[in-house]
C-alpha cells in the first residue's frame, strides 16, 4: 500500500493504428513480400528527396528554353525524365500550360493520384473530400478560397488525374523576370502553382 505512489508505469503503449501497421509489416515480411530495409528507403525518399523543387526546375527550364517547353508539351514524361526525375507515379505525365486565356487546375476525384516525381506527395487538402468534389463543380469558388481571383473571362480547365495519367501545371512566367536565370526562376515556382491553386510568385515576393 505505502509504496503505491512510488509505482511508476514504465510500459510502452502502441496505439491501435501503429499496432496494425506493425502487424502487417510482420506478416508481409514473414511471407517474403516486403523487406523492412527497403521500406525504410522508401520512407526516406518521400520524406526528404522527392518534392515540388523537382517540378519547379521543370517549369523554370520550360520558361527559359523554348525547345524544352515544346518537348514538355509534346511528351512530358520524356522531357521530365531528361532532367533525372523518373520513377513511381510519374510514368505517364502530361504538362498543361497556363495562358492568358486559360488557367489549368488539377484534381483527383477518384482518390489522390498526384505526380510524385515532380511534386512529392500531395498536401492534405488535395486528398480531402471537399477539394476532390468541389474542384470540378465549382473551380472558381475553390480558387477564391486559395486567394486566387481570376478575371471573369479567363477559362478554367480542370484535369482529373487517374492512376495512369498525372498532370503538371506550367504556370505563366511572371513579368519582369527576363534577367533571371533558371535557378532564380525556380524559386518563384510554388507547389500550388503547379497544381493550379496558385500562381507563380512575382520577383521580390520571397
Amino acid at each position: 500500500m505505502s509504496h503505491d505512489h512510488d509505482h511508476h508505469h514504465h510500459d510502452n503503449e502502441l496505439d491501435p493504428m501503429a499496432a496494425r501497421v506493425r502487424a502487417l509489416e510482420t506478416i508481409l515480411t514473414q511471407k517474403g513480400l516486403i523487406d523492412p530495409a527497403a521500406i525504410d528507403v522508401i520512407v526516406e525518399t518521400y520524406e526528404t528527396k522527392v518534392g515540388p523543387r523537382n517540378g519547379a526546375k521543370v517549369v523554370a527550364k520550360a520558361w527559359s528554353d523554348p525547345d524544352f517547353a515544346g518537348w514538355l508539351q509534346r511528351d512530358a514524361t520524356e522531357a521530365i525524365a531528361s532532367l533525372g526525375f523518373t520513377g513511381r507515379q510519374g510514368e505517364h505525365m502530361q504538362a498543361v500550360f497556363n495562358t492568358a486565356d486559360t488557367h489549368n487546375l488539377v484534381v483527383c476525384t477518384l482518390c489522390s493520384c498526384y505526380p510524385w516525381t515532380v511534386l512529392g506527395l500531395p498536401p492534405v487538402w488535395y486528398k480531402a473530400p471537399p477539394y476532390r468534389s468541389r474542384a470540378v463543380i465549382d473551380p472558381r469558388g475553390v480558387l477564391a478560397e486559395f486567394g486566387l481571383a481570376l478575371p471573369e473571362e479567363t477559362k478554367i480547365r480542370v484535369w482529373d488525374s487517374t492512376a495512369e495519367l498525372r498532370y503538371l501545371v506550367v504556370p505563366m512566367r511572371p513579368k519582369d523576370t527576363e534577367a533571371l536565370d533558371e535557378e532564380a526562376l525556380a524559386t518563384l515556382v510554388t507547389r500550388d502553382s503547379m497544381i493550379g491553386t496558385g500562381l507563380a510568385l512575382e520577383p521580390g515576393a520571397r
Binding site: 496505439d15 493504428m17 501503429a18 501497421v21 506493425r22 502487417l24 509489416e25 508481409l28 513480400l33 516486403i34 523487406d35 527497403a38 521500406i39 525504410d40 522508401i42 520512407v43 518521400y46 520524406e47 513511381r88 512529392g120 506527395l121 498536401p123 492534405v124 487538402w125 480531402a128 473530400p129 471537399p130 477539394y131 468534389s133 468541389r134 475553390v142 478560397e145 486559395f146 486567394g147 500550388d192 491553386t197 496558385g198
Partner: peptide
C-alpha cells in the same frame, strides 16, 4: 464544405505509422 487549410503545408506524414503504411503499399 470548407477546404481544410487551403494552401497549408503540413509534414508529409503526421505519424511514423503513416509513413510505414505508405511505403508498404509502394513496395
Amino acid at each position: 464544405e470548407p477546404l481544410p487549410m487551403p494552401g497549408g503545408d503540413a509534414p508529409v506524414f503526421a505519424e511514423p505509422w503513416q509513413a510505414q503504411a505508405f511505403a508498404m503499399v509502394v513496395a
